[in-house]
Design a protein around this nucleic acid. Structure first.
Lengths: 340, 340
DNA sequence: CCGGAAAACGTAACCGATAACGATTGCAAT
DNA sequence: ATTGCAATCGTTATCGGTTACGTTTTCCGG
């Protein structure tokens, strides 16, 4: 290794090879119009100096950069899954990936982060971007695919089928005999949160169970927001026999609160989450949840963005991916009615 | 949202505000020498147009960009932990983070990836870079901190105390009465792999147990590489009663092979891993392993890089972080000797 | 009312590369 | 020996900002 001095630029190569920078550029990009001997000269100079072209300078002038961007507000465990899916979709595609994360108030949702990140990247650096779970709308001059968009968004997006997933989850609880089913909602501006609530209402409606507004708590997907809501639900005299939380993070908080309050899960309370984050399989009891494959979300989003950039996208601009109910240890048949 | 046309540039702002781009630049960067009224004009124009400065263009001319880079060859679950640590260390620090990943042969170690990624970023885009588990040496013109460097590297680095960790792991096995302890090594060019092997040898030496070369298999940290090695070890007539694998990925493979061969873990065979990846807690039986906090590795690396960039680093350039043995279900006392 | 310094602002070079265009060269056809 | 057409290569403008430097304006005290 060498903590080498100034970075070697294209003009360094040009000088050593005795040609102009234009020629070096042509060689680097394999363009037509350079003689074999000149190519050899330039290549040898590049080799000697250890030159590598600057992504920044190139992207400033070029229209296409063959780099896709991804912006996210934080790195949770599911983010890694998304990234894996994205990378697998990009393998051998010729597109590299740049992920941008800014440093103010990491982990919390500062208004407009997606827009700031996006404009930082999309000016010239990237040909298009994937935005993971934005907090608001996004506008850009290059193609964008959103994973988990906001409600009523018309931006190209990839989402899990939250409606069906939530419906199935609640049907599972109904099938176990539960009738008083609490719900902890996510931030309603997000399409995912809204659909999950719709699924909850739909399943109840189809089973002829009236929706009790008192059993619905309004969280924001942040696990911390769920604790007081769970407590409030469980302290009610007519407390629910089951709780469906709109995210695993919040569901795990429910488990925690129940344990604190001495409520046995799944004996006294059944709990269902949504997402299937890795931690949910580690919980005690293991959490019943709706699996949305983050890997697939990332994979599809990357595939779609790639095609959008090259202009060969034919399919729909809003993709819905199936979900799957994972029945684990946190749900059980309701106890024989103890009501008067 | 709006799929707006061309991105708005600084000269657009200048034109609307009736000033030169130099003045806009001064306002944007809060530099001295602009009257209050002009500042207001420019700000209003920026607001109206929704202008945001291009990271690319700025970084080309500027020396400092306040962006740090990170390069990794793939996104495993531990990568997310590292990233969390990095981001937490960067919160409110004024440094943003850019992660670069290229698309050829994702997941496999193509020679020299770290160097390619690095030069893509370090030309002008970033002030410094973190490299996660490189495959070879790295040279750059900007500061670099390596997580898990190669052997005998002099680059600033952050590493877990692999030697002590491995020693402790083997001592744990010795304490359970094991004497024939197999070892599956990692790729020896990496410092981590080498130290873990040293720890193995050291613990045996201190216990007066001779090292049997036949009990050492040479893997490369890739889980797949461990399967045939484990099989070979376990098919021996004098097979080991315990196996220490240099990584959890490989240790999990050992569990798999043992199950295939009908060998009971931990009854007939004890297994210890290294890393404490999330999956190891999910295995059946749960894997005893040495925890190296990926979060802390990332956190320390980011902290160090930040200080190196600002030139205020005082501490050592090679940091060693403590490890912790997690005793779980895959280890048990050795069965009474069945030897003749 | 004037001189002069400081404040405010514009001009132009520049960062490292690419693209459009023009200039030069070589070789075959006329 | 000219002409014509490619192939080859250099020159220059440009991308979107930043910055050194020069010019103009403002605002004092004398």
């Amino acid at each position: 290794m060498a903590e080498g001095g100034a970075p070697v630029t294209m003009s360094d190569v040009a000088r050593l090879a005795g040609v102009s920078t234009a020629t070096v550029s042509r060689v680097v990009n394999g363009r037509y119009g350079v003689s074999a001997s000149t190519i050899a000269q330039v290549r040898s100079a590049i080799e000697r100096l250890g030159y590598e072209s600057s992504l920044v300078a190139a992207s400033l002038r070029r229209t296409r950069t063959n780099v896709l961007g991804l912006v996210t507000h934080s790195f949770q465990s599911y983010t890694a899954e998304v990234l894996k899916g994205v990378m697998d979709a990009l393998t051998q595609s010729g597109f590299d990936l740049i992920i941008y994360a800014n440093s103010d108030v990491y982990g919390t949702y500062s208004e407009g982060w997606e827009q700031r990140h996006l404009t930082r990247l999309s000016g010239t650096l990237t040909d298009g971007c994937i935005v993971v779970t934005p907090w608001g709308e996004v506008r850009t001059s290059t193609p964008v695919v959103v994973i988990d968009p906001v409600r009523d968004s018309t931006v190209p997006s990839v989402t899990a089928d939250n409606l069906t997933g939530a419906t199935t989850a609640v049907e599972h609880l109904l099938g176990l005999g539960h009738r008083r089913i609490g719900f902890i909602a996510g931030r309603s501006s997000l399409a995912a949160a809204w659909s999950r609530e719709e699924g909850y209402r739909k399943a109840l409606a189809e089973a002829g169970v009236p929706v009790d507004p008192a059993l619905i708590g309004r969280g924001d997907f942040n696990p911390e927001s769920a604790a007081p809501l769970a407590r409030a639900l469980l302290e009610r005299p007519d407390r629910p026999t089951a709780i469906f939380a709109a995210s695993d993070g919040m569901a795990l908080k429910v488990l925690e609160v129940a344990k604190e309050m001495g409520i046995d899960v799944p004996g006294d309370l059944s709990v269902v989450g949504f997402d299937n984050i890795p931690e949910s399989a580690l919980a005690e009891p293991r959490l019943t949840t709706v699996d949305q494959s983050m890997y697939r979300l990332g994979h599809e989003a990357a595939h779609m963005l790639k095609s959008l950039v090259t202009g060969e996208w034919e399919g729909p601009r809003q993709i819905l991916l199936p979900t799957r109910l994972l029945v684990r240890g946190s749900t059980a048949p309701v106890r024989v009615a103890t009501r008067p």
